[in-house]
């Protein structure tokens, strides 16, 4: 899927910006920095406006992400139940800080502030699959499964 095709299918007003960025991120796994100029031109915005929205919303990312996205919830309820330890454990096992991607570009580790599953925390999501009541002991098996995830 190339940028031009995505742009063609999208509207041209400012309100189409966020849906457009969603589409680009869905196609590439991130928003390639070189697409900003094309998006700005298509929507008749300045590049700085596009960049502003892009960097304001934490869902979007400019850096390429791995195919496997591991998200650890850090909301209040998960924090109470030790969500912080899960992140630490994952960082240690993967050797990268949260927010980054492993050297082989396969797996990205992310933090989220409340995924809305507070009763069953700490929660970890791997490419849309939820793991509940995660303990540091379970981290290994989750990462093992994550490596084989699509």
């Amino acid at each position: 899927m190339d940028i031009e095709k995505i742009l063609k299918e999208s509207g041209t007003s400012q309100k189409d910006l966020v849906p457009l960025l969603h589409k680009i991120q869905a196609a590439y796994g991130h928003v390639p920095p070189e697409s900003i100029a094309a998006v700005a031109k298509h929507l008749h915005l300045s590049e700085s406006e596009v960049f502003g929205v892009l960097s304001f919303n934490r869902f979007f990312t400019l850096a390429p992400k791995g195919k496997v996205r591991v998200t650890v919830c850090q909301g209040t309820a998960c924090h109470v139940r030790g969500g912080g330890r899960i992140v630490e454990e994952m960082e240690k096992k993967l050797g990268i800080p949260a927010g980054q991607t492993t050297a082989d570009k396969k797996l990205s580790l992310e933090k989220a502030y409340c995924l809305g599953c507070c009763a069953i925390g700490p929660v970890v999501v791997v490419n849309g699959t939820h793991y509940s009541l995660v303990s540091p002991q379970k981290v290994d098996s989750i990462l093992e499964k994550a490596k084989t995830a699509e």
Partner: peptide, 25 residues
């Protein structure tokens, strides 16, 4: 349906409006 891309401040009515309009929230 509009999918907002994750900012708690959008809880304020005026910032939610900005988000729908395609601006920073």
């Amino acid at each position: 349906v509009v999918q907002v891309a994750g900012a708690f401040v959008s809880g304020d009515e005026t910032s939610l409006i900005a988000a729908i309009e395609g601006r920073k929230a």
